[in-house]
Amino acid sequence: MDLIDLNAMPETEARFPAFIDDLCDKLELDYASYVAMPPLSGDVRYYANYSDDWADHYAQNNLHCVDPVIHKSVNSIAPVDWQRFDRDQNFNLVFNPGREFGIPNVGISVPIRGPYGEVGLLSVSRNCEKSVWSKLKRKIMGDLQVAAVHMHDNVMQSGILPNVLSRPALSSREKEILQWAAAGKSQQDIGDILCISHRTVEVHLRSGRSKLNALTTAQAVGRAISHGLIYPG
């Protein structure tokens, strides 16, 4: 998947809605929303591409106070399919009017936990048959996880958390592998050079990318160099 790289965009609020739109476009989804709940500041951030009508209705009726999508999903470690919610009063309060506004009732929410105890939630949905949905879900699950953490980390670093906390803590192995990547070596080559399996190389690269807030290894190499963690290849 080739998502917009939030880190490479001008640091304006506008990049977040753009990311949401791009995500829907690339992953064949109708709607997406992201909400961040930092532990101390109480400074909730919310981005979504729902219609203005629905957004108004949602806000006027304070649905964010009862929405199971938010309150239940955020406590899970795994993505939560909306089919898991009890069809209780709160569910009906949100989803009954939602239907009139064209809001799908099939969707999934991906909870994100950050290192400082803060939580975020990326929710996506689409109007389609349940069978189509379960197929799509399987296909995009991994990408959704990556997108959720990418969005979350960038929102968190856009002023909610002090920047001093954001210097990436890379392990020696992660740095070593990025250094070889900077020298133009493939994953297979790096595995051979370091006498480790290429799966291990991949695990460290994935972790390194996450810590450097990068979607691709090339971006991670660039950022590791700019942080002074590795030398230019």
Binding site: I77, I112, P115, G142, Q145, V146, A148, V149, H150, A169, L170, S171, S172, R173, E174, V203, H204, R206, S207, R209, S210, K211
Partner: peptide
């Protein structure tokens, strides 16, 4: 003494 792994796709 090394930093732990961190990834959206590792539990």
């Amino acid at each position: 003494g090394e930093a732990p792994l961190r990834s959206a796709q590792i539990w």
